[in-house]
């Protein structure tokens, strides 16, 4: 898509956002914002899992880092002394504006991704996936236990509501834009080369480690921002929110849509967010869990019968060993 195409898309979106903010009821508006967040999560995960040879299961960890950072830095002063007595003086007196807090959340997530990524990205395939999952467990355990900073399993409440449709969708569109641009840039081409053949790419002079790290860190920063938006939308965060549940959900959205396809991510996230939402009504009649099972079954069927996802490219990725 050309630059004017993007501009057109944004301009077309503005009336929708204004309408949503002013005219929609609370439930619909919430739904609309969560849809944006899930799309952003899926697209940002696609940047790593779809465009590079990394398959991360740790995206929620970076969300958590962003969410906690942003929540702590914007929390009203009146709540701090009682909730976080152990934290130093500057924390008790400093309230940051929302955009700055979001940015710092992204920075923290990116920094952790960088520090962990340096050794972690030397791993490959499954081992790397398990490594990212280990990161998720570690972050969750730390959040549960570092009571002085996170209030442990009770979580942080009273986070001011700053997220609105403009913020959420503005950032979602920005993430989509960045990801599409990256996919079509020389970075994107290098990524496809790495994904198809690591060693050949390295011999062509593509510095695989640097490129993988770049994608990993950028994707983590995006997740950090999304985590911040999330916190300022739901007002209460606790460690288990950013755990396997959401990891699995986003991975499912990504795979259903199609690894590597940005439009696929948007479609996958929309379907897998809206279908269960529609089923909530049925669930309230007493069959709790139906939507989760449905998502899981759908995922298995897609993986078996349409492994490239709904809009994914059909190309040979690294294969598990051929059997029979």
């Amino acid at each position: 898509m050309k630059a004017w195409g993007w501009l057109g898309l944004v301009i077309a979106f503005i009336p929708l956002l204004i309408w949503a903010e002013l005219g929609w009821n609370g439930y619909l508006l919430q739904l609309f914002m969560f849809l944006g967040l899930y799309i952003a999560l899926t697209v940002s995960l696609n940047l790593v899992n779809g465009l590079t040879d990394i398959f991360s299961l740790g995206h929620a960890a970076f969300m958590a880092l962003g969410a906690y950072t942003s929540a702590l830095l914007t929390l009203p002063l009146s709540r701090r002394a009682t909730a976080f007595p152990a934290l130093p003086e500057w924390f008790q007196t400093l309230v940051l504006p929302f955009p700055l807090a979001l940015l710092l959340g992204a920075l923290v997530a990116a920094l952790v991704a960088y520090i962990i990524g340096l050794p972690l990205l030397r791993l490959k395939g499954h081992y790397l996936s398990v490594g990212t999952l280990a990161l998720l467990v570690i972050v969750e355990t730390l959040a549960t236990n570092m009571d002085f900073l996170t209030r442990g399993p009770r979580g942080i409440s009273g986070i001011p509501v700053y997220s609105n449709a403009y913020w959420v969708w503005g950032i979602t569109l920005l993430i989509i834009y960045l990801t599409v641009r990256l996919k079509n840039s020389s970075f994107g081409l290098a990524f496809s080369a790495i994904r198809l053949d690591d060693i050949a790419a390295a011999s062509l002079g593509i510095r695989t480690v640097r490129y993988r790290l770049f994608a990993f860190v950028l994707s983590a920063a995006m997740a950090g921002v999304i985590g911040g938006l999330w916190a300022h939308l739901v007002r209460v965060i606790s460690p288990h929110v950013f755990s396997y549940g959401i990891t699995f959900q986003v991975v499912a959205m990504l795979v259903v849509g199609g690894l590597g396809s940005v439009s696929g991510s948007v479609l996958g996230a929309s379907l897998l967010f809206l279908i269960p939402e529609a089923l909530r009504y049925v669930e309230r009649q007493g069959s709790f869990g139906l939507s989760q099972i449905l998502v899981a079954v759908l995922l298995i069927l897609i993986v078996i019968f349409r492994p490239q996802g709904l809009l994914g490219r059909n190309q040979a990725r690294r294969r598990a060993k051929e059997v029979v």
Partner: peptide, 18 residues
């Protein structure tokens, strides 16, 4: 899923677990 990419197996097991 025999012969499918490794990642597909991983995702399937996650779904089965769920």
């Amino acid at each position: 899923l025999r012969g499918a990419p490794e990642v597909n197996l991983l995702i399937t097991s996650f779904a089965v677990s769920s």
